[in-house]
Simulated assay, not measured.
Amino acid sequence: MPYIHTSDSTRLYYREWGMGTPVLFVSAWAFSGAMWEYQMLHLSERGLRCIAFDRRGHGRSDDPGRGFDIDRLSDDLAEVIEQLDLRDLTLVGNSMGCGEIVHYLARHGTSRIARVALVSGVTPGTLKSAENPQGLPKEAAEFAIMKMQQDRPLYMTDGAIKYFNLGSTWPAAPLLSSEMVQWAIRLILECSPKASIECFRISAQTNFLPDLRACTVPTLVLHGENDQIAPLDMCARRTVQGIVGSELKTYPGGGHGMFLTHKERLNEDLLTFIQG
């Protein structure tokens, strides 16, 4: 099995498809690298080397019950890049993964990185603060954690409607089949309960605004106009303001889970950006 062995003796599983210019995918909160199935298939068949790893406590990686702080998670990303000796690399993040990417850049620099794509990112932060008055109150984040502790499968299943912007018609919604939604929920539930809760807290509470200055490579921000998890104005527009020279593309009708609901357009936008 392909594993990266980190400096704190945690094994991180990764999958790799294709040959050519490397692209490393960093997953959303509670998702393993398997979430990128449709992006990796598309891009690997078009001359790119696609790699996705499972964050600690996720998927087939070890669940050490520790190391769920943003420094350690970004260092895990660094160790994946270094041990696979990836250079001229495109980093593609989704949701929480976008925070890990910009924090990695702040801690480790851009010497190996050619470009960055941030999809449905939570940067620069979703928690309410003086800089972000429309953000999520800390009490709301802790309430969500309490609901996970009470009934995690129910919390994740109920959250899918908001996550994919399906509306009240789910499971008979036109955006995704009910089977696709159930697949996504199964992936989330494979995540360790400890990892789910700790990463949720880190993703909600971390202020990534200072890290954005470290993103000095070409950066593409892709975001849904109807994202209910990381609203466009709160996250994507503020991210673009913080990254000099970055470009924002918005998706009409797009929610937070565009890697599935808008996968065809997303795939083409990523391919154009990487090969352009």
Results as ranks from 00 to 15, higher is better:
E225Q: 10
P171T: 03
M234A: 07
P231R: 06
S192T: 05
C199M: 15
E179F: 04
L176Y: 01
T169Q: 14
V181M: 05
N165K: 10
V217T: 11
F208E: 00
V181P: 12
Q228E: 14
F208S: 03
A204T: 08
A195L: 09
V240P: 09
M234G: 01
N207S: 01
A214W: 05
V244D: 15
A172W: 12
I229K: 06
S192W: 11
D233V: 00
L248S: 05
I197R: 13
M180V: 09
D211N: 15
S177Q: 06
C199E: 14
G242V: 05
T206E: 12
L189Y: 03
L248T: 00
T169S: 15
P171N: 06
P218N: 09
P218S: 10
A173M: 06
I243R: 15
D233Q: 14
P210C: 08
S177L: 07
A230T: 15
R238E: 15
H223I: 01
P231G: 01
L220V: 03
T239W: 14
A172I: 10
R201V: 00
Q205W: 00
I202G: 00
A214H: 12
A172C: 05
I197F: 02
R237T: 02
A204Q: 11
W183C: 04
R201A: 08
C235S: 13
L248N: 05
S196P: 00
I229H: 04
A195T: 03
Y163I: 08
C199A: 03
Q241L: 15
E247R: 15
T239A: 08
S192E: 06
I202A: 12
A236P: 11
C199K: 07
G167K: 13
V244I: 04
C191L: 09
I202P: 00
Y163R: 07
L187C: 06
L166W: 09
A173L: 06
A173N: 14
L220W: 10
A173Q: 15
L209Y: 04
T239Q: 14
I185Q: 08
V244H: 06
Q241V: 07
R238P: 07
